[in-house]
Design a protein around this nucleic acid. Structure first.
Lengths: 102, 102
DNA sequence: AAACAAAGTTACCTAAAAGTAACCTTCTTG
DNA sequence: CAAGAAGGTTACTTTTAGGTAACTTTGTTT
């Protein structure tokens, strides 16, 4: 039982997926609204920079938590929503929330 | 439904308790061994500095996740173990681990 | 033709987290 | 009486995360 057990464990990966200053909040909005646009997210989180918001969204997309949907037209609209995998986080985040509140 | 809902939510607090480069690993060892000494923890995690290990342990103690027990004698021994609250994290971390592995 | 809108990107800067190496205290052991 | 062990602390450096402001592209509106 040593630290190497840890380098590739699921816990580490999972915590990585939600750690990032704004990621829990992104998830919160996507759980609540289902689909949400880039600028709406941005305006909902007044202190986040577009740069960081983009980075967070890209990472979460890569990790399979969320999906990006472009709607052509002008101006271009980009919608984000949770993937099936992302939705599985629901009960886990709820448990964490309860834990943190108790 | 805005970002202020988030500033003091349990989820934020809970994620805070486990975020820190070595915190999940500290929990991992404490869950596995029950009680573990400072230097044993330190030697089990070859790349952590004593400074950061101490900081993490202090924070987790403040947040009520772990307890510190001194055994007088020479050299002095300090044992760390999970509190009751800390043990409640067990199933949640297990769920995260499963999530991260799937 | 200028202004605006969405969804970014870019170059640069600041702040926060973590790392390094030396040092400290209290005793025991060689 | 020097060295070592446990459990740290301290001052300083490096690395990483996040922030800022300006700019870009494609088209629509005024």
């Amino acid at each position: 039982m040593d630290y190497k057990d840890f380098e590739n464990c699921g816990l580490k990966k999972a915590l990585n997926m939600v750690s990032g200053k704004w990621k829990p909040m992104i998830l919160h909005f996507l759980f609540h609204y289902g689909e949400y646009r880039f600028n709406d997210l941005w305006r909902s989180m007044p202190k986040v920079s577009k740069k960081v918001l983009t980075e967070h969204l890209r990472q979460m997309e890569e990790q399979g938590l969320i999906k990006r949907r472009e709607v052509n037209g002008f101006p271009l609209e980009v919608y984000y929503h949770l993937s099936e995998k992302g939705r599985e986080l629901g009960p886990i985040l709820a448990a964490l929330d309860e834990f943190g509140n108790s």
